[in-house]
Simulated scan of single mutants.
Amino acid sequence: MKDSILSTKILTESQVELVLNTGISLTHYDLLKTEPIHMDSTENWDQVIITSQNAIPALLAHRKFIKNVYCVGEVTAVSLKKNEIHPIHIANNAVDLAKILITNYPEKNFLYLCSEQRRDELPAIFLQEKIPLIELFVYRSIAVMKSFDRIFAAVTFYSPRGVHAFAKANPHNKPLTAICIGKTTANTAAAYYKNVKIATKQTIENTLITAIKALRND
């Protein structure tokens, strides 16, 4: 248990090596599965908001109609840039992005590509400021309710919904440390676990590095 990490997202070969090269054991699986939602949209795609890279396929399918894109997270931004889409603003979380947009573009109408399980913070801010926001559900997340009979020294989480799903499937499984990719995820984890740490950058690699450092410092 001392030197063990559970990642709630399947890792790439290089990410696996990042952990294993330190001598720490690793288990990884996809806690959340995503599937696209078919849509025939006639919405205005001029100003598009995405808060997850899971929305990128829907965005790419309508790229010829899009003028500006605004996103959350460097990982999502990198994925967009690989597809030659350069986001105008990149924020650390949905609340920060909403504040940027309502401050700088109060006259614009926005389209939010999101999941059926999206969080309320961003739409609530737009509603409060009376700025038009249309939500378009383009994917859904399905939790994989997998339970473990061992306690891991660290579990890495990449979304608030992932935290809820793991805690529900493993009510008696309390990792020594919950390592979270961002503040919103960490706030959720704090409701379940005593020791919560946040990655310094919102990337999978940095989340893993934060977990490694947490175990090596113990």
Rank of each mutant, 00 (worst) to 15 (best):
E84H: 10
N92C: 04
T76K: 03
L111V: 08
G73R: 01
F65H: 11
I131N: 01
F110D: 01
A61L: 15
P106T: 12
D96Y: 00
E129R: 10
V95L: 14
N93H: 10
K82R: 12
A98T: 05
I131K: 07
L111K: 07
E74W: 01
N83W: 04
K108I: 03
T103F: 04
I85M: 05
K108T: 04
Y105V: 02
N83S: 13
D96P: 15
E74N: 07
V78C: 07
G73K: 02
I131P: 08
L122I: 09
F126W: 13
R118F: 12
Y105D: 07
K64G: 00
A98H: 06
E74R: 06
N93L: 05
R118P: 12
L122F: 05
N93Q: 01
Y105R: 03
N104V: 05
L133Y: 10
L111W: 05
L111C: 12
R118W: 03
P106I: 05
E116W: 14
I90S: 06
L122S: 06
N109M: 06
I90G: 02
N109R: 14
V78P: 00
K67Q: 15
I100S: 01
F126R: 12
N83R: 13
A61D: 15
L113Q: 08
K81A: 08
K67R: 11
L127Q: 08
A77T: 05
P123G: 00
I85D: 03
P132F: 14
R119I: 04
I85L: 15
H89W: 08
E116H: 15
C71M: 03
L136P: 06
Y105S: 09
E74D: 13
G73Q: 08
I125W: 02
L113S: 09
H86N: 12
I134N: 01
F126P: 05
L122T: 04
F110K: 02
E107A: 08
R63Y: 11
I134Q: 04
L97E: 06
S115I: 00
L97W: 02
I88A: 10
